[in-house]
Simulated scan of single mutants.
Amino acid sequence: MSRATEGVTGRPPPFLGHDGAITLLTALAVAGLTLGLAPFVATRAVARTARQAPLRPAMVPARILVLGHRLEAGEVSAVFAARLGRALTLARAAPDAQVLVLGGQTSPGAPSEAEVGRDWLVARGLDPARIGTETRSRHTLENLAHHRDGGGGGAHEALVTSRAHLHRAVLMARGLGLAPMAVAAEDTPVATRLGLVAEGFMVHWYVTGRWLSRLLRRRAWLQRIGGA
């Protein structure tokens, strides 16, 4: 379902969607045909980024983006707390920077990740006037697409997320025309081998989907995933 359809019906597009299902099946087929080599290469890239990710941006940021994480009983998870804690450290070091917390509802009736994240930051002394929220997103790609569509981007944006998540997040951001400075949430890598493999497959799926969209000249698919 396209954004135009969303505007007419008032409903968000499906979480996966027709194109997502097709690209997922293609990614699985490519993984099988390459005897697992394609997702293995992606996993190596994820692990390398996780290992080398910096704890501060190369330049003083004008805006600090914090990617949300699924809440636990309506509260900030340990993973999300690490991301918010890093953003708080950056915000204190750059008092003119704005902070944007990204993340919608992941459970019916629950508050959005962004709202809970904002409250976490305010409770630790960050001026609420410095904090913005994006509350419609259900996953990383929507986080970044909604930020871009809302006028985000430009120079000197820092993107804070977990080390294992950084490679995919930055890849998607660049596909959408954004150019954030990656910043790791954790001081040191903490992802398990299984977690890295899962992230590697997600990266493989994204890259396969972008390649297939270009091959089939599916502009709507490319607009959705970035890379148009």
Rank of each mutant, 00 (worst) to 15 (best):
M1L: 13
S2K: 12
A4N: 09
T5R: 15
E6M: 13
E6G: 01
E6T: 15
G7L: 14
V8T: 06
P13K: 08
P13Y: 00
P13W: 08
L16S: 02
G17Y: 02
D19R: 15
T23E: 10
T23V: 14
A27Q: 04
L28S: 03
A29Y: 00
G32L: 15
G36D: 05
G36F: 07
F40D: 03
F40H: 12
V41S: 04
V46R: 05
V46A: 05
R51P: 01
Q52N: 12
P54L: 12
L55F: 01
A58D: 12
P61G: 06
I64E: 01
R70Y: 05
R70K: 15
L71R: 07
G74H: 10
E75A: 13
A82V: 11
L84Y: 02
L84K: 03
G85R: 13
R86P: 02
R86Q: 11
L90P: 00
D96S: 15
V99P: 03
V99Y: 00
L100P: 01
L100T: 14
V101Q: 00
V101C: 00
Q105I: 08
Q105T: 11
Q105H: 10
G109S: 11
G109P: 01
A110V: 11
P111Q: 13
A114Y: 03
E115S: 15
L121M: 04
L121P: 00
A123Q: 14
A123H: 05
R124H: 05
L126S: 00
D127V: 10
P128D: 02
P128E: 07
I131Q: 00
E134C: 05
R136S: 09
R136C: 04
R136K: 12
H139L: 00
E142V: 06
N143R: 06
H146V: 15
D149M: 11
G153L: 13
G154K: 10
G154D: 07
E157P: 03
S162I: 10
A164L: 14
A164V: 15
A164H: 12
A164E: 10
L166Q: 09
H167T: 08
R168A: 02
G177V: 12
L178A: 02
A179N: 14
P180C: 08
V183Y: 02
V183A: 07
A184H: 04
T188A: 13
P189F: 09
L194M: 12
L194C: 01
L196W: 04
G200M: 11
W205L: 06
V207T: 08
R210S: 01
R210P: 01
W211P: 03
L215W: 10
L215S: 01
L216G: 05
R217K: 10
R218T: 07
L222F: 02
Q223E: 15
R224F: 04
G227H: 04
